[in-house]
């Protein structure tokens, strides 16, 4: 059901930009998420195959940091891979290991994360000695970048080699993007090349603008969450 962002306490860091693009919002986790923009679902799916930018800031995410964080998470049944790699979990969440002492948990595209629900319920400051929550939903915006031009577009603002044959699905780059620290995760959507960008929420509107500028030459444009969900539902490469 359509909802207006300002009727909810929790608001995306770029809700004004999305509203100006004719967004239709729906409520996810007490936040209005732009499901579609003015172009509509079908056009946005087509656009995102080439190059699309979507705001996922309303979706579920979290993280833990500290000298026992990885062990504690493993004890909670979280699968953790190598540093700067992401592992997909049974419930559709993804866990990115950011350091020997930190992991970030990204929920699914529907806005849920059974894993985070469970981990958060099991945490207490003394019970999880050495593992402390990182307020990812507030510290960071979360954008999805999709489409075959994604890596070339990102090369205009990011100095890490993100080309698909060098930066595999699930790989994490913690680097500088348009002169801001950011986390980039390769996250293909079905057969479509894709990246997550997670960075300073206070700079969300700056990054949104910078990305659109970088996307222009490829005809890239913002899209709604529905387009991202639709691409993710397509069958990926065997």
């Amino acid at each position: 059901m359509a909802v207006q962002p300002a009727t909810l306490n929790r608001r995306s860091f770029v809700y004004r930009e999305l509203a100006a693009l004719g967004a239709t919002f729906r409520e996810v986790n007490g936040c209005a998420v732009a499901a579609t923009l003015a172009a509509g679902r079908a056009a946005e799916i087509a656009a995102a195959r080439d190059l699309g930018l979507a705001d996922l800031s309303g979706l579920r995410r979290g993280g833990y940091k500290g000298w026992t964080a990885l062990d504690w998470l493993r004890g909670q049944g979280v699968a953790i891979g190598e540093n700067n790699m992401t592992l997909k979990q049974g419930d559709g969440s993804r866990v990115a290991r950011l350091a020997d002492s930190e992991a970030m948990i990204l929920g699914d595209l529907a806005g849920g994360s059974a894993l985070l629900d469970r981990v958060e319920a099991g945490w207490s400051i003394t019970g999880a000695l050495g593992a402390y929550p990182v307020p990812r939903p507030e510290t960071n915006f979360w954008f999805a970048i999709a489409g075959r031009h994604s890596d070339t577009m990102l090369a205009k603002i990011c100095g890490v080699d993100l080309r698909p044959h060098r930066f595999p699905d699930g790989a994490v780059a913690q680097t500088s993007v348009a002169r801001m620290s950011a986390i980039i995760i390769r996250h293909d959507l079905g057969a479509t090349l894709g990246y997550d960008m997670i960075a300073d929420s206070a700079a969300a509107s700056y990054m949104w603008t910078s990305l659109q500028d970088a996307m222009d030459e490829f005809g890239g444009r913002p899209v709604g969450l529905d387009a991202i969900v639709a691409l993710a539902a397509e069958t990926g490469p065997a």
Partner: peptide, 11 residues
Amino acid sequence: PLNGPRNISEF
């Protein structure tokens, strides 16, 4: 040691 080879401007 964590992130691999990076431009020194990140440091």
